[in-house]
Amino acid sequence: MLEVKDLKVNYGVIQALKGISFEVNEGEVIALIGANGAGKTTTLQTISGMLTPTTGSVMLNGVDITRIPGHKIVSMGLAHVPEGRRVFPGLTVLENLKMGAYTRSNKKEIADSYEMVYESFPRLKERQNQLAGTLSGGEQQMLAMGRALMSKPSIVLMDEPSMGLSPIYVDEIFKIIQSISDAGTTVLLVEQNAKKALAIADRAYVLETGNIVLSGDAKDLMNDDSIKKAYLGE
């Protein structure tokens, strides 16, 4: 479904990605883990067209999207929940969700999506007329996820959805990611909370200063000694 090949990305002279390749198959939950500054966000931003790589390619459902501008990629079935949520603070919860459906026009289908999002996030429904900037961090994260789902994506990229949340919220967020996957949406999940990410992922890739250093079955990685030491704190 998503195929990344030999991706190199530079910020000026700094090379943030040094030629990474990986793939995400339909229906999978793939975890991309790594320390601060490893290049996780850069990877997701390059896939969704926010950044242009120096070399390499990104294929989505067999279409080369490497140089397609970001705003055109959404309607091809890819949604991105960015790092730091990035909800529209001055718009209400409802208006934020409406923005998520910007590329769609079928009113009936959009109404179904609202229903689906409100079902997954009942709290958003309660707060639909509240300004997004006044939501708590966890609620903003739910809004960012709900907003991404409003585009009816076939694959969702999520950048550290559990960042800065209290343990209860973290559990809830991971439950929701699981249910998004159960509903048939493919997930590429970037996380620093490697333990939780590996627990729900099918496969995982480990990124270290711009290179993929390890990959494999999530269950195997969980038992890998180097992973245990570096990312699971055991």
Partner: peptide, 9 residues
């Protein structure tokens, strides 16, 4: 940036 992610040109 978030607008781009919504599919806005």
């Amino acid at each position: 940036d978030a607008a781009v992610l919504m599919g806005i040109n």
